[in-house]
Amino acid sequence: MREIHASEIAKVVKSLCIEANLYLGEDVLAAFDRAEKMEESPVGKEVFEQLKENARIAREEQVAICQDTGLAVVFVELGQEVHIFGGDFNAAINEGVKQGYQEGYLRKSACHCFSRANTRDNTPAVIHVEMVPGDKVKITVAPKGGGSENMSMVTMLSPSDGIEGIKNRVVEWVKQAGSNPCPPIVVGVGIGGTFEQTALIAKKALLRTLGEKNPDPKLAALEEELLTRINNLGIGPQGLGGRFTALAVHVEMIPCHIASFPMAVNINCHAHRHKEAVI
C-alpha cells in the first residue's frame, strides 16, 4: 500500500488549475496553425491570428487565456493500492482549487443557483473519481467555461434512429449553438450508457489529445464525417462565417440498454484546456 498525504493532492491540483488556465496545449496551437492556413474567410484568418497572439500573451505574461477560467472539473484515476492519509480527499481537491484560483489570479465563477451569490473561491470543484489498478494517482484538471458548457445536450434517442439519428442530432445541435460557444470549437460526443454516463463520456472525450482519432475505425469515420458536416455549416471562427467551425470531433461509445440509445454533446471552446499530472 502506497501512502500519499492529502496535502500532496492539494498541491498538485493547485498547480494544475494554474497551468491549465495559463498555458494552451501544443495540440491546440498546432490546430490553430493548420486551420489558419486553410481558412478561406479573411475575418476567420484574423481570428486565428488573435487566438495565437492571445495564447502567446497568456503564456509569457502568465495571465489567464480566457477570463472565464471555468468551474474546476477534476478527474481522478485513483490506484487501488494507494492510501490517502492526513485529511479528507475531496476537501484536499477543493483546497487545491481554492489556492490555485486565488494565487493564479483566476476568476472565481461558482455561485449559488438562486441568489447568484459568488462562493468567492471557485469551489466546490466538480470531482469525478475512478478506481484503477496500481499505486499511482492521475489527476486531470479541465476548467470548463460557462459559454461552451451552456451549449451541452443529452438526449435519449430510439434504437431505430440509428447512427444517422446521431449524426443529424449532433449537426443540428452545433448549428443552433452557432456563435455562442466561441467557435472554433471541439465537439465531444457520448453515445450509449445511461443518462448520466453518456454525458460523462461526452465530457471525457474532450480530454483526448486534439484530433487524435477514436481507435475504433467505425467511430473514427463517424468523427471525420461529423467534422466535415459541421464545418460545412459555414459558422466559422467566432461565428463570423468561414471554414472552421470545429477543430475536431471526438466520439466515445459504450454499450447501452436494449431499449435505449442515449447520446450527449459537450462542447469546448477553442480555449481547450486540460492539464494532468501523475503522483
Partner: peptide, 20 residues
C-alpha cells in the same frame, strides 16, 4: 458584457474577453 479575471499587480485588469 464581461466578467474580468482579477488583475495581477501592475495590470489594469485581468483577462477580459466577452461573455455570451
Amino acid at each position: 458584457y464581461v466578467g474580468p479575471a482579477p488583475a495581477k499587480p501592475g495590470q489594469a485588469i485581468g483577462s477580459a474577453g466577452p461573455t455570451t
